[in-house]
Computed example of a mutant assay.
Amino acid sequence: MRFPARAACAVGSIAFGLSALMAHPALAHGVSSGDKAYIQTHPGINIIPYIYLGAKHMVTGYDHLLFLFGVIFFLYRLKDVGKYVTLFAVGHSTTLLLGVLANIRADSFIVDAIIGFSVVYKALDNLGAFRKILGFEPNPKAAVLIFGFFHGFGLATKLQTLSLSREGLFANLVSFNVGVEMGQFIALSIILILMTLWRRTRSFERNVVIANTLLMTAGLVLVGFQLTGFAMESGS
């Protein structure tokens, strides 16, 4: 077996492992105790800390990155990547701001389970499953926007766990969102570089099914962990 094929399997295995870690309550990509303590002891406008927090959350947000990996899997032109990423950004920015400012709440386990399902959906879409099973493919741009809403709401649920000061709240949220976009740009750039290198090898076409099957498995792991957490929370 050539190195590119082994690398493809390794990437999928790593994605699976990271998703399992992210789903574990102790290692979830929420707000760390240190960041929480800083925010709660520094009320008012804190632009730089919130930018850092947003970027950190996106870079360690394995569910967001797995979804984006699935979205760009078959996008070869930067123009197309830009369109889909913009739709995703519009979606998650809208519900992030609305969720916190309007204090719209939902169970974080359910929201994160839907985010995990978005990874499953994208893997199935890449495999052409919807056309084979349903006879048609859902609009891919609409799907990215809709799931972007849920990803943004997931971000909002993380911030809602903090005792955020109302003083400077809007400025801080905008700063957090700017950080999210910065983190997304950095992570997406790395993913695009690796994807471009992989696409230039013969192993890409041979491993499309394997890669997306692993991606779907990672999404199912996320869904399973979140629903388990919801069941445990409801039963306690």
Rank of each mutant, 00 (worst) to 15 (best):
A156V: 02
L97W: 06
T161E: 15
F109I: 01
A5P: 03
I186T: 10
N207E: 10
F204V: 09
I47N: 07
G54A: 03
L188Y: 08
L65Q: 02
A37P: 09
A15H: 02
I47T: 15
L53M: 12
R200F: 11
G99M: 08
F150Y: 09
T201E: 05
L162Y: 00
L164V: 10
G224W: 04
I186V: 15
H42Q: 09
L97R: 02
V178D: 04
V59M: 14
F69G: 14
A7G: 06
A15N: 11
A5Y: 11
L65N: 01
T228R: 14
F67D: 02
T217M: 15
Y62H: 08
K79G: 12
A187W: 02
V71E: 01
A102Y: 11
I191D: 01
S189R: 03
V90A: 14
S165C: 09
Y62R: 05
A10Q: 01
L87K: 00
S32V: 06
I133D: 00
R206D: 15
R105V: 11
G135F: 07
G82M: 09
L65C: 03
V119K: 03
A37Y: 09
N172S: 05
L68Q: 03
K122V: 14
R166G: 11
T95H: 07
A106D: 05
L194M: 13
F185R: 08
H24P: 00
A23V: 10
E233H: 15
E137M: 08
R206W: 13
A218G: 12
F176W: 04
A23T: 13
D63L: 06
N207Q: 12
K132W: 07
L68T: 08
I39L: 11
G183V: 07
R166I: 10
S118Y: 07
H29I: 02
F136I: 02
D63A: 05
S108W: 05
I114H: 01
V180F: 12
L18H: 05
A218H: 04
S189C: 04
F109T: 04
S163M: 09
G30Y: 03
A15C: 14
S93P: 01
W198N: 08
S203H: 12
M232Q: 15
F136H: 13
A28I: 04
F109G: 02
T196R: 15
L101G: 07
Q160I: 07
V85T: 13
S163P: 00
G219W: 03
T228V: 11
K83I: 12
F67R: 00
V119Q: 06
A102K: 10
L188A: 14
A26Y: 04
S118L: 05
L159R: 01
I104A: 10
A102P: 02
L75C: 07
Q184N: 09
L134I: 09
R77A: 12
Y121G: 03
R199A: 05
M195D: 06
M232E: 15
D35M: 13
F73I: 03
I114S: 05
F149A: 02
I191M: 12
S13D: 07
R200Y: 11
V174M: 13
D112H: 10
M1K: 11
A211G: 08
M216F: 12
G183S: 05
